[in-house]
Design a protein around this nucleic acid. Structure first.
Lengths: 205, 205
DNA sequence: CGTTAAATGGACAGACCTGTACAGTTTAGC
DNA sequence: GCTAAACTGTACAGGTCTGTCCATTTAACG
């Protein structure tokens, strides 16, 4: 009878509580903020018993932590998809910008409100472990850009890291502004500015 | 015993409740976030009766709104001070970057955590009036930059607005990263990058 | 069928939240 | 000194918060 299980799972079987909780938490945490979202709201949206939450996560803080980790992994997955279609380091850098635009587009229907990771960090006090998760995420983004620039400017590593920081600031700032305005047009502008910077850097060589 | 009171008044008389509340709210809201900070915490830090809070503000939301307005005004005051010492539009643009660095420095002792306005916006749901206050604040910052660039590149208004957006992204992104890292070095980098962009733009003419 | 793991629903404790009420005290200006 | 305005301290109402507990039901699988 394992085929029933597999079949049901394939068609529309109820997903395990942990998964449902993470999906519900993602929606509520992103839309309303972590602190303003109560456990009861999350379990109601997940349609799950409170006991099931505390069987999967030892506390709300751990659920928040899982939310942060999940969003980081999702970002990486989106980025890898974007990267697949690229040819060369210049396009690979722009794929990072496109990944941000994808995030904005994904959040558009429910209400785009900027970077979910950064928004959580804004709620956490100095010293909270969650802030380090977000800091490392942003460092990863910058490192990915710098890595591609290393290929684009092989004989100028110093310029690659400086330009990488520049581009990551550009990207992060555009995301913040886009989040305030509720749409992704600022991110499109940033992509254009980034492309011009890339062309300028390669022209010089 | 009125001389004790008066003496204290002459030396450092107790400031009115509203003022004390705004100072206390600024500290707690910035350090711990708006939602995580209760009214009781604010009045305890302000050393003020709860009645005094509700005599000055009709609700916590109005206190938050006053906090946002105050921070915007403070930013403008810091900016004007920075602007005084400048000679020419190039330095005026960099004064905006210096203003951000001043904000980071001011928050350093208690724990720098990025832009106080943006952090509040990150807690507010889409449609909240507070988000518009922050959005307009950031637009003001960009417009100030664009205004200086209009003087720097008088015959190229289109370039001025594009470069202004670029610089404001750079600034905002650096602030976000600096907040995550807890110090202002990213802002110093952004200032350097901005100066290079300004030089590049004027060289072309 | 029987075992085991997962999930349920709801009650509960104890703390904290916002906002109100009220009676009394302090302060400033005339 | 008197009046009006500002402020105090505290108690309270009515919610909501996180986290625990427990008795029960459901589902998977040998």
């Amino acid at each position: 009878m394992s085929e029933i299980k597999t079949g049901a799972a394939a068609v529309g079987r109820r997903r395990p509580a942990r998964e449902r909780l993470l999906v519900a938490a993602a929606r509520r945490f992103y839309a309303d903020g972590v602190t303003a979202t109560g456990i009861d709201t999350v379990i109601a949206e997940a349609d799950v018993a409170k006991t099931s939450l505390y069987n999967n996560f030892s506390s709300k803080a751990e659920l928040v932590r899982a939310y942060l980790d999940t969003r980081h992994e999702e970002w990486l997955a989106t980025y890898r998809t974007r990267l697949e279609g690229t040819a060369g380091p210049r396009e690979a850098v722009l794929a990072v910008f496109d990944t941000y635009a994808d995030c904005a587009e994904a959040a558009r229907e429910t209400g785009f409100r900027g970077c979910g990771l950064l928004n959580v960090a804004a709620e956490l006090p100095v010293g909270d472990a969650g802030r380090d998760v977000v800091r490392r995420h942003k460092e990863t983004v910058e490192e990915l850009i710098v890595g591609h620039l290393g290929q684009l400017l092989p004989e100028r590593p110093g310029e690659a890291s400086a330009l990488g920081e520049h581009l990551s600031f550009l990207l992060e700032g555009a995301m913040a502004r886009a989040g305030l305005e509720g749409d992704g047009s600022r991110l499109a502008h940033a992509r254009t500015l980034a492309a011009a910077l890339l062309d300028g850097a390669t022209d010089k060589s």
